[in-house]
């Protein structure tokens, strides 16, 4: 029983391959071969097996724990394949077969990669600006009542506007589309980071600052050594929220005015009615978002190691 459970992805993959090869395609379905679909199915199963066989300790246990999940993912792909190629139950124009999607991923990989790089450049630039200014604004709001008096209302008024609503103005104000998009990303990250940083500072126990003062810490030292680390958990939540809303903003921005980028690619392919490319773009985008969020989690766990016993996520 146990072997079936841990080898579930391999069994699913074999079954999927058998179905793909042995069941004849529908007469309505017209596409060459099944090679890419089989390749991807095999790749998933092999990757899983490699982790299971050569992973050490934790990696291995975690892989085995995910066996049912990956096995079922492969089965779901099988079902999708059967629906789209064997029986054509959905309009093929909007629901292309996995074979077509995977073949686009490979044949268009260079172009997709370029689009992705272009997008990531804007994303990274805007994200960094948004984080830095968000944290700075939040700290100033948290510590300076004068700054708070003037800027807090501004944050409250400007913050909740969805960054994409600025597109008409931003496109006019900024000389290049890169700068305009970066600005929108920065705006999307800035607002939640600011609010949560300020919130985090407001929530710090006053006695921490009293401890600092009795130990001889100056005002600047209190801000740097007590205010910032104590507000760090909140800052991270702000950055997370900002990152997620920046993805939305970026794709919307690219769909509206950009000449390049992954969001533009999806929109362009939609207009060309090639939905296989749309799905390929979506897959690439979701992978990247997943990687970014995972990386952020890893960074947070590294920096906020002290939280293990203090705050639950």
């Amino acid at each position: 029983m146990k072997i079936i459970k841990t080898q579930w992805p391999l069994i699913s993959a074999a079954f999927t391959a058998a179905v793909a090869l042995l069941v004849p395609d529908s007469s309505e379905y017209s596409a060459p071969g099944t090679s890419y679909f089989l390749l991807f199915t095999a790749l998933m199963a092999i990757t899983y097996e490699l982790f299971l066989l050569f992973g050490k300790g934790q990696v291995r246990t975690k892989t085995a724990y995910r066996s049912a999940f990956w096995g079922t993912v492969i089965l779901a792909m099988n079902i999708f394949n059967v629906i789209t190629t064997k029986y054509v139950l959905l309009p093929p124009l909007y629901f292309p077969s996995p074979e077509k999607i995977f073949s686009v991923l490979i044949s268009d990989s260079l172009f997709l990669g370029n689009c992705l790089l272009y997008t990531l450049r804007i994303q990274l630039l805007g994200w960094l600006f948004g984080c830095v200014f968000g944290i700075l604004t939040g700290i100033a709001l948290g510590f300076s009542s004068g700054f708070k008096y003037w800027v807090q209302p501004l944050v409250r008024i400007l913050g909740p506007i969805p960054p994409t609503a600025w597109i008409p103005i931003v496109l006019v104000v900024f000389p290049s589309i890169i700068m305009a998009s970066s600005f929108l990303i920065a705006l999307a990250v800035w607002f939640p980071t600011t609010v949560l940083t300020a919130n985090g500072i407001a929530n710090i126990k006053n006695s921490y600052f009293e401890v600092g003062a009795t130990l001889g810490a100056s005002k600047a030292c209190s801000i740097l050594k007590i205010g910032i680390p104590a507000a760090m958990p909140f800052m991270f939540i702000g950055i997370f929220n900002g990152t997620c809303s920046s993805f939305i903003t970026l794709v919307t921005a690219e769909m509206l005015g950009a000449k390049y980028g992954i969001g533009w690619y999806i929109n362009w392919q939609k207009e060309m009615m090639s939905y296989a490319n749309v799905y390929a773009g979506l897959i690439v985008m979701s992978l990247v978002c997943y990687l970014v969020i995972t990386a952020l989690f890893k960074i947070r766990d590294r920096i906020l190691v002290w939280q293990a016993g203090v705050i639950k996520w």
Binding site: S207, P229, A230
Partner: peptide
């Protein structure tokens, strides 16, 4: 203080060193 008020983000060593570093 009545509560220990150690900074949770610092190790015991760094907590004790805080005042010396601040000065």
């Amino acid at each position: 203080f009545q509560e220990h008020n150690l900074f949770p983000w610092l190790t015991i060593y760094d907590n004790i060193a805080f005042g010396l570093r601040a000065r």
